[in-house]
Design a protein around this nucleic acid. Structure first.
Length: 280
DNA sequence: CGGTTACCCTGGATGC
DNA sequence: TGCATCCAGGGTAACC
């Protein structure tokens, strides 16, 4: 669930607790999430470090420690999330930072344990990890970059938008909203978009993601919450995701829910009238 | 090599 | 009430 807007909201929420603070005590409650290191090693690396920056890269949370000590990179993936207040499900706590400086405690919870916690010793190893897994961030990619990255593939546009190596940050929910606003069918071949469609797509990426950040992301069921435990507002007024069978806000046609090739088992929601698929 | 799919994991919803 | 099944989807690895 945490896509770019949720992770951006997390990072903004974490900064008051972590920026300039010292990670006085690091507690690992589940070493399954740690990437190629033991709990003891991670605690030795991060314990006592001062936090210099808290940033987002795609869907990843990046905590840069002062004095070139190293980088903590946390991938919330499906169900990971941070808390600055005691989390409601303590059995899902995987990592705790107790700080001095701000005196706050930060909890990382992850019910499904799909999240990852990595350590990189310096800028170049961290940047190499980003380059291996991620293309340009969806919030800053230019139209020309987007065009170049969609070129030469026969894949569908939705699968391509969700490929983090093409551009980083878009997942299933926002892909559907972006494609609806762009009036592009999710199965369209990514390299076959017309110039006007590419312009609409690039604009929609920025508008949808920035709007979602402004309302603090998407919450449904027991999923994502802000660091203070609040629900995000995006799905209260969104157009497509999760609205199969409801009338399209643009034309009234029932919203279609389908499984689209190249997206494994994920559901796609779109309006068959506003997002027509040209016959092959 | 590009594209597709199985799988990692758990909790909540649904079905019998 | 209890048990089985399905679904959620971010990301990696194996496969064709």
């Amino acid at each position: 669930m945490p896509e770019l807007p949720e992770v951006e909201t997390m990072v903004r929420g974490l900064r008051p607790a972590l920026l300039g603070a010292t990670l006085r005590e690091v507690e690992v409650l589940d070493d399954f999430l740690l990437v190629e290191m033991t709990s003891d090693l991670f605690i030795r690396r991060a314990g006592g470090a001062q936090v210099e920056r808290v940033d987002r890269r795609g869907k990843w949370v990046v905590i840069q420690c002062a004095d070139d000590r190293g980088w903590i990179v946390i991938q919330p993936r499906m169900t990971g999330g941070f808390w600055r207040v005691p989390p409601p499900r303590p059995e899902h706590i995987r990592l705790i930072f107790r700080t001095s400086g701000t005196g706050e405690t930060v909890w990382f919870c992850d019910s499904r344990r799909l999240g990852k916690i990595a350590w990189y010793p310096n800028d170049s190893t961290a940047q190499a990890a980003f380059a291996r897994s991620q293309g340009p961030d969806a919030l800053v990619i230019t139209k020309q970059e987007l065009r170049d990255r969609l070129r030469g593939t026969s894949r569908g546009i939705k699968a391509t938008l969700m490929d983090q190596k093409v551009l980083a940050g878009i997942g299933n929910i926002y892909a559907d909203e972006i494609l609806y606003q762009s009036r592009i069918h999710p199965s369209r071949v990514a390299s076959g978009l017309k110039a006007t469609e590419l312009t609409r797509l690039h604009r929609a990426i920025g508008e949808i993601l920035n709007h979602a950040i402004a309302v603090e992301g998407s919450t449904f069921d027991a999923g994502y919450r802000t660091v203070l435990g609040l629900e995000g507002g995006f799905l209260a007024t969104n157009a497509m995701y999760g609205r199969g069978g409801q009338p399209c806000p643009g034309c009234g046609e029932p919203i279609e829910r389908a499984r689209i090739a190249g997206l494994i088992g994920r559901s796609s929601y779109f309006c068959p009238r506003c997002q027509p698929l040209p016959k092959a």
